[in-house]
Design a binder for these strands. Structure first.
Length: 425
RNA sequence: GGAGGAAUACCCAAGUCCGGUUGAAGGGACUGGUCUUGAAAACCAGCAGGUCGUUAACGCGGCGCGGGGGUUCGAAUCCCUCUUCCUCCGCCA
């Protein structure tokens, strides 16, 4: 959530920044600010009346103890009661906050301008395209027997997969290798729930705007079902949801930042609006594994920590020997909550292009405001930490990349050296 | 699934039946001081943070006893609801 005061004080710049995303926020922001100003006005009047009422109420207690007559006091209170009604104040506050929750984050000043992923800026290329003496197959053709989409569709639905045998073991090896590597580099491993409540999804930014892409736990259990209440629960679309809520409603004590977390989870996404895209293979699934990187930093170091996070993600690709590039996302492609994003894209020879396997973002204080997450700095001031998330990385896409890039003509696959210990080889 | 408890400030804990200077006793921890060569102990003093509004600022005010709602002139205390935790029985990986 954007800081309403910053929105007021730097209105022109903030609107300009938001508009770079591709739609015009001018009117919406103006209305939010107007509602907010109306809110503070009404709030003030209400609090003044409330203050009077509190004083008079105390007097009644004293009068009664002293045996004095209170008729006059009650008459005075009667007129105050109307003014202390907070219905209107609550309505105004709900109105401006619910609208503010749907406004994306501002973009950092150096964000390249553009409309979509075509306009992203390449900032680094590592390695070279692998050379093949034969026509490289797509990853799901390399091991058609061990990536079982047909049975997955029968048992579940399209965009789910069943992995078998060595491919299943390989994905598990990839997962463990990633987690171990990140742990060794200073990230604390966190085991996470795969179901989160709606408060958590509001704080991390998926709600209220992106409910369509989430799997919601159906509320059909009857009234004695503990999941059947006014709260809603969702399958997490990423472990980021959990990691971003680790310190919700907390104050992180001075000196504890930066906090570095890593977590593996299955991720669940409806992929609404992606019909027809990447329909074959592992690239776009309703359920996939991902190792997540997450940082809580102070205000001053978040961009530097983002660079480090990108390096930590790169380390995986380098160890695996994959050809990749890093792109800085342009204004039109940066996600809702992010202020700055780098994507890591791995070469897929069968498609003759780079595909995203990781996205590392500086969310600034956007999630911290939503989740009331604060930290105490060295002077004792309470501030919102900056929060960073990145994939390190999506295991299914890395599995696919390995299958494609290291395939042999006979259908076998060379396993990267770093994974061999994880396969007991 | 059944039957009972409980949630108060950094921690422990009184107050809740019977609403009124209780924004909250007491203890511990913590901070400062006295004493001491130094420390410990003892003694003295301080100790609600956070958040929102307002103000140039000092300040003033609202909220706040697990969360949300309600009753009342007034709620830690009464009512409703949700969440979390604990004990026993049952079931289960």
């Amino acid at each position: 959530m954007l800081d309403i005061k910053r929105l007021i004080n730097e209105k022109e710049q903030m609107i300009a920044s938001l508009n770079l995303r591709g739609s015009d926020f001018t009117q919406e922001i103006e209305e939010i600010i107007a509602t907010y100003e109306e809110y503070t006005k009404k709030l003030n009047a209400m609090e003044v009346a409330k203050s009077e009422l509190n004083k008079k109420s105390k007097l009644i207690g004293q009068y009664k103890k002293a045996g004095k007559d209170t008729t006059e006091l009650f008459a005075e209170i009667e007129s105050l009661k109307q003014d202390t009604d907070k219905t209107v104040v609550d309505e105004l506050r709900n109105s401006y906050t619910s609208r503010l929750m749907k406004i994306p984050n501002f973009l950092q000043a150096d964000t390249p301008i553009g409309n979509d992923d075509e306009d992203n800026v390449e900032v680094k290329v590592y390695g070279e395209k692998p050379h093949f003496d034969f026509e490289p197959k797509q990853h799901f053709e390399v091991t058609s027997m061990q990536l079982d989409f047909d049975r997955a569709a029968k048992i579940s639905k399209s965009r789910f997969v069943i992995t078998k045998g060595l491919v299943a073991r390989l994905e598990r090896a990839i997962t463990n290798y990633m987690l171990d590597t990140h742990s060794d580099r200073g990230y604390m491993e966190i085991g996470v729930p795969f179901i989160a409540n709606q408060d958590s999804l509001y704080a991390s930014g998926q709600l209220p705007k992106f409910e369509n892409d989430l799997f919601k736990i159906a509320q059909n259990g009857g009234e004695d079902d503990e999941f059947e209440n006014e709260r809603s629960f969702y399958l997490i679309p990423t472990a980021e949801v959990v990691l971003a809520n680790m310190h919700r409603d907390e104050i992180i004590e001075e000196g504890e930042l930066p906090l570095n977390y890593t977590a593996y989870s299955q991720c669940f996404r409806k992929e609404a609006g992606s019909a027809g895209r990447d329909t074959r293979g592992l690239i776009r699934m309703h359920q996939f594994g991902k190792v997540e990187l997450f940082k809580y930093t102070d205000e001053a170091t978040s961009n530097a920590e983002l660079e480090k996070m990108v390096e930590d993600a790169e380390k995986i690709l380098q160890d695996l020997g994959l050809h990749y590039r890093i792109v800085r996302l342009c204004s039109g492609d940066v996600g809702f909550g992010a202020s700055k994003t780098f994507d890591l894209e791995v070469w897929f020879p069968s498609q003759d292009k780079f595909r995203e396997v990781s996205s590392c973002s500086n969310v600034w204080d956007f999630q911290a405001r939503r989740g009331k997450i604060r930290y105490r700095d060295a002077e004792g001031n309470v501030k919102h930490p900056h929060m960073l998330n990145g994939s390190g990385m999506a295991t299914g896409r890395i599995l696919a990349a390995i299958l494609e890039n290291f395939q042999n003509e006979d259908g076998t696959v060379e396993i990267p050296k770093v994974l061999l210990p994880y396969l007991n080889r």
